[in-house]
Design a protein around this nucleic acid. Structure first.
Length: 713
DNA sequence: TGATAAAAAGTTTTT
DNA sequence: CTTTTTATCA
């Protein structure tokens, strides 16, 4: 039997081998979704004779792109996987825009504005226009508009009819924002997709080679991504999507579940295949998870069948405080490892959180107990201040006309150019229609004399900054051999005397910060940063995208593009793979994982904890869609293979002093109680669901048997 | 005008 | 408990 088809069940086999050109696979948690998709790619390659460079495979996260690639490699090998067009929506779009952006007037070497860039641009605009919209709101609204394919021009038209002050102000912010991005030659996350849609609409030949499009996590696509799918598949109209409506947890990012139906309408001969068997979790866990998801009455019922035995029943535990909760989790971990006789390792445990900020108590308890852990999600490595400084320097080297990056570094380390001076310079540049960089450079070189006055020392220091940038640029452009951003970083660090600056500015923890800098250097040098598949062979002269007859791809300076790609990868990377910190003989995977639920999607562990499962946190108090929060809990629960623990503290010490937990109409004492035959009723998401509990699971309770009582003193 | 100190306010999830 | 804004001083 063909090794590609080995070990597939009937439904998976049908999905992998289906001759239908349009396929919609609905795959609940643990049903072998990625396996099926990877097998289909392998099958198409080996049985249909497709060439890998004509297959386009889109995912949402870098992690799943990587996994996809590994799986295909395992199935067919032969280096085929490296030649697939495979990556996240954003990275693939970036690739097309780099190669063909010139066709729709996108300037060479554009940068990517990450969410903090976006935030600061919007903040500045609102301040300048003297509006009183909340910057965060404006930001999400802009992104929402864009994800529905509505630009500021269309929006302005719409708003003209509405005649609403709020809307009008928003439209102004939107326009100014777009204008600012254009000026700085930046594209934000939504632009990457939106402009790629423009490109493919106007120049469909760019993707005329594409024979099949495959999309993972289809329930997370938004309208623009749906358009992208259509456009990518325009020639052969062959599309395979995999997804699960029950795991749609990105509605807040404008993911539109209607895309499933929309796809069936777009391609009338869509074949829908349901995978139903769960190979991941114990029967009891599936049962509990199903009870949660089935509370959603608007949901179309689809079966999820356990293949494993019932196993141990999930546990819900109510505890005094977040601290108690953390130490309970730790004691459970230690106990399980002990009782399993070493069968379970640290890496078999995961703690999944609604919000990253909840990790604090758990992390500190872990630290005290000396358990090795790794936090996934939360603050990104690249968001650390010292790293951002360096990256901003690189961005200025890459694109000096990026005003925002320049503003952020112009007085770091302090050069005597305070807010007022910078503001004056910016206004002058604006008035002259030049970038801040050009203005400053010409001023220093004596071509023009700026109106803005500054002190002699400030002028000298500014001059040295400009020289650093100019020299760095020259270094980069003159490089003909292998170039790595590391050299530039080293040069900048040396010139700035960054170490001394960090020691002065962050007395307490400058060592940790310097370590981060060194980490960044390591990442920049060994290409580990190029998490994105396409970047690996950049220097080798391999083509980014298959060459298309009669279409010219942008060719640029190799070093310049390496730097811009490095920066793009940083902007698109969620986290950094750190395999190198194996301290004290531990292996890097011998760690307990603490993660947000969102970041845990697609993963699985033998033992999963879901702390802070109380109303206000899950469902989150600021969430708009309770059903989505419910699905979030469903996703979290279905990460567990053998043991599932949920817990909730009765008190909340987030604001310093102990205070009763946010109630939101949910009274622990009323809802959490042990009924006659060992059945716990849990108030999750307004409706109760029941988990029958094994006798003895609570024997170690401080409240010997009396679960009905509120444990708060 | 810029740096420092004190006060205030703010916390969802991610490409 | 931390980060960002505002008031004061050099």
């Amino acid at each position: 039997m063909d090794p590609i088809l080995e070990g597939l069940n009937a439904a998976q086999y049908t999905a992998v081998t289906s001759p239908s050109t349009v396929l919609q696979i609905l795959a609940p948690p643990g049903s072998g979704k990625t396996k099926t998709l990877a097998s289909r790619v392998a099958y198409l390659l080996s049985h249909h004779g497709y060439k890998p460079w004509n297959i386009l495979c889109l995912t949402f996260t870098i992690k799943s792109a990587r996994e996809m690639k590994e799986r295909v490699a395992k199935l067919i090998g032969d280096g085929m996987e490296a030649r697939l067009i495979l990556g996240t929506f954003h990275s693939v779009c970036r690739r097309y825009l780099v190669s063909y952006g010139h066709l729709i007037g996108i300037r060479k070497g554009f940068g990517i504005a990450d969410s903090s860039d976006t935030a600061s641009i919007i903040k500045r605009i609102i301040k300048r226009l003297n509006l009183n919209i909340e910057p965060r709101k404006a930001q999400s609204r802009i992104s929402c508009s864009k994800s529905r394919g509505i630009g500021h021009a269309e929006l302005a038209q719409q708003e003209a009819k509405k005649k609403n002050v709020d809307h009008e102000e928003f439209a102004r912010v939107f326009e100014a924002y777009e204008d600012q991005l254009e000026k700085s030659n930046l594209l934000d996350y939504d632009d990457l997709l939106l402009r790629c849609v423009d490109l493919l609409r106007q120049h469909p030949t760019c993707v005329s080679n594409v024979e099949v499009v495959l999309i993972d996590e289809f329930q997370d696509t938004n309208l623009v991504q749906f358009d992208l799918m259509r456009l990518f598949a325009a020639k052969k109209k062959s599309v395979t999507t995999v997804g699960d409506p029950d795991q749609s947890i990105y509605g807040w990012r404008s993911a539109d579940i209607k895309n499933l139906k929309r796809m069936q309408k777009q391609y009338p001969d869509t074949l829908v295949i349901n995978l139903e068997d769960n190979y991941r979790s114990s029967g009891a866990i599936i049962l509990a998870a199903r009870e949660v998801i089935e509370q959603d009455e608007s949901r179309v019922s689809r079966p999820l069948l356990p293949t494993h035995c019932p196993g141990t029943v999930p546990v819900l535990r109510r505890l005094l405080s977040a601290e108690t909760e953390a130490s309970w989790i730790i004691s459970e971990i230690v106990r399980s490892i002990g009782m399993s006789g070493g069968l379970l390792a640290y890496s078999d445990f995961a703690i999944l959180l609604r919000s990253a900020s909840l990790s604090r108590t758990i992390e500190s308890a872990m630290g005290k107990a000396g358990l090795p852990y790794r936090m996934v999600g939360g603050q990104r490595f690249f968001d650390r201040i010292e790293i951002k400084i360096l990256l901003d320097y690189l961005r200025v080297v890459s694109q000096p006309e990026n005003n925002d990056a320049l503003v952020r570094i112009i007085n770091v380390p302090p050069r005597g150019l305070g807010a007022t001076t910078v503001k004056a310079l910016l206004e002058e540049a604006e008035a002259k229609g030049r970038s801040l960089w050009t203005l400053a450079r010409d001023a220093i070189q004596g071509h023009t004399i700026p109106k803005t006055r500054m002190s002699k020392t400030a002028e000298q220091r500014l001059s040295s900054l400009i020289n650093i940038i100019l020299t760095a640029r020259r270094k980069m452009l003159e490089t003909t051999t292998r170039f790595s951003p590391e050299e530039l970083l080293k040069y900048i660090i040396k010139k700035l005397d960054l170490k001394a600056y960090l020691e002065k500015a962050h007395e307490n923890d400058h060592e940790a910060r310097w370590a981060n800098v060194e980490e960044l250097l390591a990442q920049a040098s060994d290409n580990a940063i190029t998490v994105d598949e396409e970047s690996v062979d950049f220097g080798g002269g391999k083509e980014l995208l298959p060459r298309i007859e009669g279409l010219e791809q942008t060719q640029g300076n190799v070093a310049e593009e390496t730097l811009s790609k490095f920066l793009a990868n940083v902007a698109l990377a969620t986290e950094l793979q750190r395999e190198d910190d194996l301290t004290e003989g531990e292996t890097s995977n011998a760690r307990i994982i603490i993660s947000t639920i969102h970041a845990a999607k697609g993963l699985e562990w033998p033992v999963v904890f879901i702390p802070s499962a109380y109303e206000g946190s899950l469902p989150h108090s600021r969430a708009e869609d309770t059903n989505e929060e419910r699905r979030l809990l469903y996703v979290a629960m279905t990460r567990a293979q053998a043991l599932l623990y949920m817990s909730c503290p009765t008190r909340n010490s987030q604001r310093g002093k102990d205070r009763p937990a946010p109630v939101f109409g949910f009274k622990c004492s009323t809802y959490i109680c042990l009924r006659g035959n060992n059945t716990l009723t849990i108030p999750i998401l307004q409706k109760c669901f029941q988990i029958s509990c094994q006798q003895g699971a609570y024997v170690r309770s401080q409240h010997s048997g009396r679960y009905c009582q509120d444990s708060a003193p």
